[in-house]
């Protein structure tokens, strides 16, 4: 499970086997990600942030914690704890925009912006107003 491409043939585990965790894990289904002993072979430790052209920005002010974004996120990138949406995992978000599409609030609590716009506070400050229907 070495990551160095220059490693020799005898540096790898037989059978190209990969272990998800470094230590024994009991009840992984009820262990939150922050408490898991991820191995460096687990893709959780990798990033696809450079795939993004657009990125979602989260505005907590309008969020009703419906969890639509959580369930429909294909990349496990909506971080919900204790039934509350608390943020986006920007290492794993590929910028598909599903979370924005399924967000039911008005105005939306998530909006897509160009990846290179870094000042999120400014984006939130300029958040669009409620749309009249």
């Amino acid at each position: 499970m070495a990551k160095n491409e220059n490693n020799g043939w005898n540096d790898f585990d037989i059978g190209a086997l990969l272990f998800s965790f470094d230590k024994e894990t009991k009840n992984i289904a009820t262990t939150l990600q922050e408490d898991r002993p991820y191995s460096n072979s687990n893709s959780f430790t990798a990033s696809v942030a450079d795939w993004r052209v657009m990125k979602p920005v989260f505005n907590k002010e309008f969020c009703i914690d419906c969890q639509f974004c959580w369930i429909y996120c294909p990349d496990m990138s909506i971080i919900s704890r204790d039934k509350k949406m608390i943020g986006i995992d920007m290492d794993h978000c590929k910028g598909c925009g599903i979370c924005v599409e399924v967000c039911p609030t008005n105005p939306k609590s998530l909006l897509m912006y160009d990846e290179h716009l870094e000042d999120e506070e400014a984006l939130i400050a300029a958040w669009p107003a409620k749309e009249e229907k």
């Binding site: 939150l32 914690d65 794993h92």
Partner: peptide
């Protein structure tokens, strides 16, 4: 809401 307390066993990236 209750479902969202699940700990994913399928990982990102």
């Amino acid at each position: 809401k209750e479902f969202s307390t699940s700990a994913d066993r399928f990982e990102g990236a």
